[in-house]
Design a protein around this nucleic acid. Structure first.
Length: 613
DNA sequence: GCAAGGTC
């Protein structure tokens, strides 16, 4: 009997379907001489410190450097503390029984570092010795699965990938556990002050933005606006310069030849320029972009959106949610017309879906090379009934985005009019010529600046118009806004893009900080520690958060670069470099940061209070 | 009591 193990039930079901296996059992599917089983993500984790004999939180234990790491069953929190997750224990027992029967194992966990780790941890924990082969596919269509099975790889081909994954895991444990205990202990052990490779740079981003925003000194500047009128249709034109003083602006204002000043037609049209601009449709959603949109449209937190999306996925209404790709391959694209057709009677999108059926679809989101372990989020074509309001909102964002992504470009006409009245003034306006993809949601165009006119009257060069109004506008420079969940998610994705070191920047280019699957929980962790709070839509540090930031802000652990350095080394390990050197460096760093943090500490008040304004 | 990673 051959046993196929997938990372999650949905993938095991897909593969079983391709084989025509239909015999559903508790925790696996059987048929055609194969057995298809699954994990639920990581079933095993590196064991907690006490399992190596480091009892309690104690300076004498630090740094904790286990000579050999142990694995333990994933835990859940109960009223009696942390216990083995019973559903995980049960599934592990099922896997063990199947592995015991197996002649060969086929590893079908996701094609990536963590997918490899998920399987290997199970395999080694169960002390399994059976031979295994690796299925390596990046698309789960029937054809891709069949092709993958014709091309199974020797399991040992991925030993170095496992090494890099295990190093990642151990390094996070060593640095995180030790730094957390060290800072908590040196601060009086009154609260858990956690630190980690991802959470601490994230906290640092929030704090430094908060301080920058709070300490920002606004500068006042002045502009002059005039209002020419074309046969009853007035529009606004602005001085192209910003003036530092009111006097400078006043001088410009005084020269304006307005009606009140005795000029019946003192606005001379110097030029009119109209340029079309094509705006391509947005890409399909990945988890992060959907979380950002749901935060902007509905105020959902990243965690809420992930939860709602997971429910939709479990109801088979949308494809796999924790994806980091905004593209689909040609195989999935082939099914898109059928998918679009399903929305032709939709109350909001029906008209656009019907329109799209007869159109050539835009292929901007189709690129197999940019599909990583999972493709972009799509509706499955399964039609929902009776969704809750929030589920419906998320479902509509997924399906609406699909219609947008395959729609035509939006064509805008951008008009610029230069008017002379004393000095020169410019008026600009944007008119949508052909809505294209923008017809799906019909949202107001967020790019538009507040000085812009929606539509400008038709005027000709050489015309002289009455200027019916003029004014000095007093404005202030604005600081960068505080982070909210949407902008923070974006910031985490792009973290590392400004690193000076080219190699580190390259190592982080596809990852940023955290992963799509973990970013929501990183934000929740910072809130749980009372490092940050939600204030309206913003994420604002507390006193505790700022204290922690002040202690660590110049340490490596607070920099996104740390992830870059690790990623670079982990990639070298994947391509065959020795793990010993990296492990020794991590241990040295762990000793170092532990010692530093034991020295400093946060003297008083660790109970959170919202930071003052 | 603690990391980051994955998922029901």
């Amino acid at each position: 009997m051959k046993v196929i193990i997938a990372e999650k039930p949905s993938v095991a079901r897909e593969i079983a379907k391709v084989f025509g296996a239909v015999n559903k059992k508790d925790g696996y599917i059987e048929g055609k001489g194969y057995t298809f089983t699954w994990a639920f993500g990581h079933l095993l984790q590196l064991a907690a410190p006490q399992e190596y004999g480091y009892y309690g939180w104690n300076v004498q234990n630090l740094p904790m450097l286990p000579t050999k790491f142990k694995l333990s069953i994933r835990k859940v929190k109960t009223k009696d503390g942390m216990v083995d997750d019973p559903s995980v224990k049960k599934q592990l027992d099922i896997i063990k029984a199947l592995f015991d029967e197996a002649t060969e194992i086929i590893v079908a966990t996701d094609a990536g570092r963590e997918g490899e780790l998920i399987f290997r941890y199970i395999y080694y924990y169960l002390k399994c010795k059976k031979p295994f082969k690796r299925l390596w596919i990046s698309s789960q269509t029937d054809e891709a699965i069949k092709e993958g099975f014709r091309n199974l790889k020797p399991g040992s081909d991925y030993d170095t990938l496992f090494n890099s994954a295990h190093c990642r895991s151990q390094s996070d444990w060593l640095v995180g556990m030790n730094a957390t205990q060290a800072l908590s202990l040196s601060s009086g052990n009154r609260a858990v002050l956690s630190l980690g490779r991802v959470q601490t740079p994230t906290l640092a981003m929030i704090c430094s933005r908060y301080l920058e925003n709070k300490n920002f000194v606004p500068q006042t500047y002045y502009q002059v606006a005039i209002q020419p009128d074309k046969e009853g249709q007035a529009f606004r034109a602005i001085s192209p310069e910003n003036y530092k003083t009111r006097e400078e602006a006043q001088a410009v204002l005084d020269k304006v030849e307005d009606v009140a000043g005795g000029f019946p037609a003192g606005g001379h049209i110097l030029s009119v320029e109209a340029k079309p601009r094509k705006e391509p449709p947005p890409l399909l959603h990945d988890l992060s972009s959907l979380q950002q949109e749901a935060n902007k449209r509905k105020g959902f937190t990243a965690d809420q959106t992930l939860g709602l999306l997971q429910n939709l996925y479990e109801s088979k209404l949308v494809t796999y949610p924790r994806t980091g790709s905004r593209y689909i391959g040609d195989d999935v694209f082939a099914g898109v017309p059928v998918l679009i057709e399903k929305f032709k009677d939709h109350p909001d999108f029906g008209k656009q879906a019907t329109l799209l059926i007869d159109q050539k679809l835009n292929k901007r989101s189709v690129n197999a090379k940019k599909v990583t372990d999972h493709h972009a989020i799509l509706p499955t074509g399964e039609m929902p009934n009776q969704l809750s309001k929030d589920h419906q909102a998320i479902y509509d964002m997924v399906s609406g985005r699909m219609l947008e992504a395959f729609h035509q470009e939006c064509i805008k006409e951008i008009t610029k009019i230069v008017v002379q009245s004393g000095d020169k003034f410019t008026a600009s306006g944007t008119v949508i010529g052909s809505a294209g993809w923008r017809a799906v949601f019909n949202d107001p165009d967020e790019e538009k600046k507040d000085e812009e006119n929606a539509a400008l009257p038709k005027v000709q060069q050489g015309e002289n118009l009455p200027v019916i109004n003029k004014a000095i506008l007093e404005k202030q420079t604005k600081p960068k806004p505080l982070y909210n969940e949407a902008s923070l998610l974006k910031g985490l994705e792009t973290a590392g893009k400004e690193i000076d070191d080219e190699e580190l920047r390259y190592a982080m280019k596809d990852s940023g900080l955290g992963t799509p699957a973990t970013r929501a929980s990183i934000i929740e962790t910072l809130i749980k520690r009372t490092y940050i709070i939600r204030e309206k839509k913003n994420l604002v540090p507390t006193e505790t958060g700022l204290n922690v930031y002040n202690v660590v802000k110049d340490q490596k652990i607070a920099q996104a670069e740390l992830t870059g350095t690790w990623e670079k080394r982990l990639e070298e390990i994947r391509s065959g470099a020795s793990i010993n050197e990296f492990q020794e460096e991590i241990k040295a760093y762990t000793r170092n940061i532990t010692q530093e943090l034991l020295k400093v500490g946060i003297p008083k008040k660790v109970i959170a209070e919202p930071a003052g304004n």
